[in-house]
Simulated scan of single mutants.
Amino acid sequence: MNLNQIINMVLRILLRRGVNWGVNKGIDLAAGKGKAPAQMTEAERQEAQNARELAKRARKAARLTRRL
């Protein structure tokens, strides 16, 4: 392995971590992590639960597409 290949490998690793971090932050933001459960109505609590499940599925889908 020459120096160019090593640099490219390290850059790919860092870029992959950065993209993963960004995708996870965006999904969390879209899921609406905001209020504490004590301040929510029952409907808001149910909606937050659905958003967390949807975010979990979106994270899994993003992971699968990154593998391809």
Score class of each variant (00 low, 15 high):
residue 1 M to C: 11
residue 1 M to D: 10
residue 1 M to L: 13
residue 1 M to R: 09
residue 1 M to V: 13
residue 2 N to K: 02
residue 2 N to E: 07
residue 2 N to G: 10
residue 3 L to G: 08
residue 3 L to M: 11
residue 3 L to V: 13
residue 3 L to H: 09
residue 4 N to M: 11
residue 5 Q to S: 11
residue 5 Q to Y: 04
residue 6 I to M: 12
residue 6 I to N: 05
residue 7 I to P: 01
residue 7 I to E: 08
residue 8 N to I: 09
residue 8 N to E: 15
residue 9 M to R: 15
residue 9 M to S: 13
residue 10 V to R: 09
residue 10 V to E: 06
residue 10 V to M: 07
residue 11 L to F: 11
residue 11 L to W: 05
residue 11 L to R: 12
residue 11 L to S: 08
residue 11 L to Y: 05
residue 12 R to V: 09
residue 13 I to P: 01
residue 13 I to E: 11
residue 13 I to S: 09
residue 13 I to K: 09
residue 14 L to F: 15
residue 15 L to I: 15
residue 16 R to H: 08
residue 16 R to W: 10
residue 16 R to C: 07
residue 16 R to K: 12
residue 17 R to Q: 10
residue 18 G to I: 03
residue 18 G to H: 02
residue 19 V to Y: 04
residue 19 V to Q: 06
residue 19 V to R: 06
residue 19 V to I: 15
residue 20 N to A: 15
residue 20 N to H: 15
residue 20 N to E: 14
residue 20 N to M: 12
residue 21 W to C: 09
residue 21 W to V: 03
residue 21 W to N: 12
residue 22 G to I: 02
residue 22 G to T: 01
residue 22 G to K: 01
residue 23 V to S: 00
residue 24 N to R: 13
residue 24 N to A: 14
residue 25 K to G: 00
residue 26 G to N: 02
residue 26 G to C: 06
residue 26 G to T: 01
residue 26 G to F: 03
residue 27 I to G: 00
residue 27 I to H: 00
residue 28 D to Y: 03
residue 28 D to C: 07
residue 28 D to N: 14
residue 29 L to V: 11
residue 30 A to I: 08
residue 30 A to S: 04
residue 32 G to D: 01
residue 33 K to W: 05
residue 34 G to E: 08
residue 34 G to M: 05
residue 35 K to F: 02
residue 35 K to H: 03
residue 36 A to V: 08
residue 36 A to N: 11
residue 37 P to S: 03
residue 37 P to D: 02
residue 37 P to I: 02
residue 37 P to A: 05
residue 38 A to E: 13
residue 38 A to F: 07
residue 38 A to G: 06
residue 40 M to W: 00
residue 40 M to K: 02
residue 40 M to V: 01
residue 41 T to V: 01
residue 43 A to H: 04
residue 43 A to S: 09
residue 44 E to M: 03
residue 44 E to T: 00
residue 45 R to N: 02
residue 45 R to Q: 09
residue 47 E to A: 15
residue 47 E to T: 05
residue 47 E to V: 06
residue 48 A to Y: 01
residue 49 Q to S: 06
residue 49 Q to P: 00
residue 49 Q to Y: 13
residue 50 N to C: 04
residue 50 N to G: 06
residue 51 A to H: 03
residue 52 R to Q: 09
residue 52 R to S: 05
residue 52 R to L: 07
residue 52 R to K: 11
residue 52 R to E: 07
residue 53 E to A: 07
residue 54 L to F: 08
residue 54 L to C: 10
residue 54 L to V: 12
residue 55 A to S: 05
residue 55 A to G: 06
residue 56 K to N: 11
residue 56 K to R: 13
residue 57 R to F: 03
residue 57 R to W: 07
residue 58 A to D: 02
residue 58 A to G: 01
residue 58 A to E: 01
residue 58 A to N: 01
residue 58 A to V: 10
residue 58 A to T: 11
residue 59 R to D: 03
residue 59 R to V: 04
residue 59 R to T: 02
residue 60 K to G: 08
residue 60 K to H: 11
residue 61 A to H: 06
residue 61 A to V: 14
residue 62 A to D: 03
residue 62 A to V: 06
residue 62 A to N: 05
residue 63 R to H: 14
residue 63 R to L: 14
residue 64 L to H: 08
residue 64 L to G: 05
residue 65 T to M: 15
residue 65 T to D: 12
residue 65 T to E: 13
residue 66 R to F: 10
residue 67 R to T: 06
residue 67 R to Y: 07
residue 68 L to Q: 09
residue 68 L to N: 07
residue 68 L to R: 08
